[in-house]
Structures are given as structure tokens and as C-alpha cells.
């Protein structure tokens, strides 16, 4: 059981990081459906940077920057040039997938350097890892996972306790109001889209560098779409995303786990569960009339100050 939960946590981390990235983007009022593409960009560039330099941090940095570059394209098109966000996001995914397999073809099958594997090997935190059940699951993990806990806390504080978080919410809810109050709409939108995209890239980098630790084509395998779904599941709250990602991460490995226990359920059925669960969630949340759980009101609406 502990082993399963610990593995579920590992599987949940890329989902979590990408979901938080998309939450930041959507809070600023942009619906970026390119998460899958951004994760692929991050995965391939992170892998290449890590492989060529042998340095784990260079790898993660490469992944983050690749995500930033991809989402910068999205931002330029949708914020400055006011292109349709759905179509632009899908394009980003197609581009990212194409780019990743094009650039990555020479790396197929190559393993990550030893230093990187060592850096991201599980590390028991003193005291905390001795807590029964919780200890081995949550506190005997790699440094990246500890960093993720930290990230969730930081992002929550940022969104709910700082001026910038308040302004961000205003930008996503009513760009015209935020603008009239002197908030720099484009700046906020750019920063959060690019930063959010960077997190998506980082999530991809974690997959290629740590989870797989060898380059395989299409390493992300649809997790980007699950992250898009998780944003809704979590009602745009990073803290809820933590739980949601853990749940979905668990589902993604449940089939193999059950097979090894002799219970025969096809993994393909279990693979459907995250998607089916998301559908269930959006159906249920449409019944929910609480205004606080709704998407940002200006989501996927572009803003032009001089529009009349």
C-alpha cells in the first residue's frame, strides 16, 4: 500500500506542476490548451540540456525555459495579436509534439547521466519520514517533489495573500475593471502565461529526466490534457489541485498495480478513468451555483482598451 501511494505521488507530480502552471494562466484570463505541447517542449529540451551538460539543474532550467518560450508564442498571439485562444492552444500542442519528436529523434533510447539520476533519487527527510504511512509516502521522495510542496504553498500565498494575487484575480475576472484601476493588464497576462508555461515545461522535464530517465517519444502521453481537466477539477485552487493530482496520478498506475496483485482489470479501462472523472466533474460543477467556483469571468476573452 505504501509503495503504491508513493508511486502514485510520483505519478502525480507532473500533473500537479502543469496544473498549477495552467491555473496561473487561466487566472490571468487565458485558456491555454497547449499544455500538452508545452510539456513536450519542456520534456525534450530538458532532456537534451540535462544529457548534454550532465547537470540536473541545467536540465530543469532547460525544461522551464522551453515552456516559457512556447507559452511566449501563445502569449504574443493571443494577448497582443488577439488570436483565438482555443485554436492557438491546439496549434501549440501540434507544434510542441512535432518539435519534440523531430528534435528528440537522435536521443531515443539514451539514458540520463548518472549525476542526474543520483540527484533525483529518493531522499528520506529526518523525523518526518518516520511518521507511519505518511512518512514513507510523502517524505521519502526526491528533491523535486519536496520542491513541489513548497511551490504549492508559495503559489497559494501569492494568489490569496498578496496584492499581486488580488490584481491577477481582477485581471482574469474583469480586465476592463482592472485596467480602469490602473493594473497593467498585458504585463500581468504575459508574466503569468509565460511563467505558467514555464511550469508546464518543468513538468515535462520531470517526466523525461526523472520519471522515465530515458528519452522515449511522446513521453507526456496525454498528461497535458489531464492537467487542463485538473484545473477545473480543482476549481482554480492550487491546494485542491494537490489532492486532484494525487488522485489522478493514482489512477494512472492503478491498472498495473492491480494486475500485479492478480486482479485482472485492463489498464485501458483504468486509463479512461481520469478522463471520465473529469467529465463527471464538469457536469457536477455545472450544477454548482456558487460564484466562487466558476471559471474566471473573462477567461478566453481578449482585451483591447480602445474597443467600444
Amino acid at each position: 500500500m505504501e509503495g503504491f501511494l508513493a508511486a502514485a505521488l510520483v505519478a502525480s507530480i507532473p500533473l500537479l506542476i502543469a496544473t498549477i502552471g495552467e491555473i496561473l494562466t487561466e487566472k490571468a484570463g487565458l485558456l491555454n490548451l497547449g499544455v500538452e505541447g508545452l510539456m513536450l517542449l519542456g520534456a525534450v529540451m530538458g532532456f537534451i540540456a540535462g544529457y548534454e551538460s550532465g547537470n540536473p539543474w541545467a536540465g530543469l532550467m532547460g525544461a522551464f525555459l522551453a515552456g516559457c518560450c512556447g507559452s511566449l508564442m501563445f502569449a504574443i498571439l493571443t494577448i497582443s495579436l488577439r488570436a483565438n485562444q482555443v485554436v492557438t492552444g491546439l496549434t501549440l500542442t501540434i507544434f510542441g509534439a512535432g518539435f519534440a519528436s523531430f528534435v528528440g529523434k537522435d536521443y531515443i533510447g539514451l539514458p540520463v547521466p548518472a549525476l542526474i539520476r543520483e540527484t533525483f533519487s529518493p531522499l528520506a527527510l529526518p523525523v518526518l519520514s518516520d511518521i507511519p504511512l505518511l512518512g514513507p509516502v510523502f517524505f521519502h521522495q526526491d528533491v523535486f517533489i519536496y520542491g513541489s510542496y513548497f511551490l504549492v504553498i508559495i503559489i497559494c500565498l501569492y494568489l490569496y495573500r498578496t496584492r499581486f494575487g488580488l490584481n491577477l484575480k481582477a485581471v482574469g475576472e474583469s480586465a476592463a475593471s482592472a485596467d480602469a484601476a490602473g493594473v497593467r493588464i498585458s504585463l500581468y497576462r504575459y508574466l503569468h502565461t509565460v511563467g505558467g508555461g514555464g511550469l508546464c515545461g518543468l513538468a515535462g522535464g520531470y517526466m523525461s529526466l526523472v520519471m522515465m530517465s530515458v528519452w522515449v517519444e511522446n513521453v507526456v502521453a496525454g498528461r497535458g490534457w489531464i492537467a487542463v481537466a485538473l484545473v477545473i477539477f480543482a476549481a482554480w485552487n492550487p491546494f485542491k489541485a494537490l489532492g486532484g493530482a494525487f488522485l489522478f496520478g493514482g489512477l494512472s498506475i492503478l491498472g498495473f498495480r492491480m494486475q500485479s496483485m492478480g486482479i485482472h482489470v485492463s489498464q485501458y479501462w483504468i486509463d479512461m478513468l481520469p478522463y471520465a472523472a473529469t467529465i463527471l466533474i464538469i457536469i457536477l460543477s455545472s450544477r454548482n451555483n456558487r460564484k466562487e467556483n466558476q471559471p474566471p469571468a473573462d477567461l478566453s476573452v481578449s482585451y483591447f482598451r480602445e474597443d467600444r
Binding site: R163, L166, S177, E292
Partner: peptide, 20 residues
């Protein structure tokens, strides 16, 4: 130009300078 899901106080605080 008000944000519907925010309180009066939050609306007043939007876009203002000051501490973090």
C-alpha cells in the same frame, strides 16, 4: 468597473501600490 466576485474592500484594493 467592478469585479463581481470580489468584496467592496477587495475592489478598492485592486491596482493599488503598497506592501506585498
Amino acid at each position: 468597473k467592478l469585479v463581481n466576485v470580489m468584496t467592496a474592500l477587495e475592489n478598492i484594493m485592486i491596482g493599488r501600490r503598497g506592501g506585498l
